[in-house]
Design a protein around this nucleic acid. Structure first.
Lengths: 235, 235
DNA sequence: GAAAAGATGTGATTAATATCACATTTTAGA
DNA sequence: TCTAAAATGTGATATTAATCACATCTTTTC
């Protein structure tokens, strides 16, 4: 029965293994959790959840990236998080069975492992140490949200863009020679929706930052950071 | 020794008792925690912590209200939270000993109960259920931050003000006849710094909302909501 | 209770981004 | 590979809140 504990989607690993919050579990428990998981796939652009949907499962990203966003009064998207492999959405507080307070959409083809709320609650009750792990993750999210708020309330839009680029560097920057290469999973419009400006504005500002030599735009999905110090000065 | 377990600041109660995260503790443990607490007082306007200060204690508010904020690049305050009795600041994740990522200032005379990080860690290790309680509180804060982000990215400033007033109604609205009375702990400037506009702008918008009959301004610290439905329509 | 300090209101002006319109480039699909 | 659709760039203009300046009101302090 060695086969059974493997997850067909997650490249023959325990998919729960990818999630740091489950890292405190022993192999046996990990297998048990993995067996409870139901897999789902989403094509790029597909909606994973709508605000208001009942949130009775935990969604753990096993492959791909998603954007989590709310709509403003004007109908504009405001992105809250970009989540990738190992991240999760869904209600983590015990007993509460509420609804999603945001929308989530696949930025690329995405595989998700889902765990029923009841099953998760049981795992949590039997392994309260998991709550401490969750706290770490949640603490990190809070700090990101606080930073985003600080950025959104800055009137200087180049500063907001610089913050965004610096966070991209942290999350998926690749160092190549003297430069840092960013393969951005977001369209220009998404980037604009992350820092609360219009597509046209971010387009113009990125161009001017290129003219100043701080960055280099390479197609629509790649930005090369030529001068990270300049970015830091802008923030 | 009945006297000793009382907290001199917190009106002769276990001060830890006020904090919902400690509600899972038995009386004996509650006493132990209370004995570990050191009390501090702050006058209105005093700074409780600066961004970057080492955060080696948990600060539990026992009386008064505080504002938690960051500075934008331009030096403008951006308020993140208004916290009151029972709320806390400080690092809740086990083992981590980091620094405050924000500033906090007393909005009125404030009494705080502080618990050393080591002591808190011990309590947490012996009572992992507390982590679940913390998760609830932290979940609530995340939702508030997400809502604030949604509000800040809305260009319609009356909508932002309406959101702010609606959250005030939830937090400290008093129903009187057909109206809701808000005794606001914030100055106009603080309110402006909460929703990311200037003092002048919020002053003008509040006046126009008064002209429309939605609210009534009574001095600087009191706003009477004449028509809550109007506010909801604005958001 | 008076004076000073601080907070708020308000008009005039400026500055910057949103908006609109459309050209151009890139991507995806047959 | 070609074509259609989608995404992006860019100019002109409108709009709106920021800024500046100062009057007025409120609160604090002696």
């Amino acid at each position: 029965m060695e086969e059974k504990k493997n997850c067909p989607v997650c490249e023959n690993k325990y998919c729960a293994n990818k999630v740091s919050i489950f890292s405190v579990l022993e192999d046996k428990e990990l297998k048990e959790v993995t067996d409870l998981i139901i897999h789902k796939k989403y094509k790029k652009g597909q909606i994973i959840c709508f605000e208001g949907d009942v949130s009775d499962r935990l969604y753990i990203i096993s492959r791909g990236k998603i954007k989590v966003f709310k709509y403003t009064k004007e109908g504009k998207e405001q992105i809250l998080y970009i989540l990738s492999e190992g991240d999760f959405i869904g209600d983590l507080s015990l007993l509460k069975r509420s609804s999603f307070k945001f929308n989530a959409e696949a930025l690329e083809d995405v595989a998700v492992c889902t765990l029923g709320k009841n099953d998760f609650d049981n795992v949590l009750k039997e392994n309260p140490e998991i709550a401490l792990k969750i706290l770490e993750v949640v603490h990190d999210r809070i700090m990101r949200l606080e930073d985003l708020i600080q950025s959104l309330s800055t009137n200087d839009i180049e500063a907001r863009i610089a913050s965004l680029l610096l966070s991209f560097i942290k999350d998926f920057g690749i160092v190549e020679e003297d430069n840092i290469v960013l393969n951005i999973p977001l369209s220009r419009e998404d980037m604009a929706n992350y820092i609360g400006v219009t597509r046209e504005t971010i387009s113009r500002k990125l161009s001017s930052m290129q003219d100043e030599g701080t960055i280099e735009l390479s197609g629509n999905k790649k930005i090369i950071i030529k001068n990270k110090e300049n970015l830091k000065l802008l923030v």
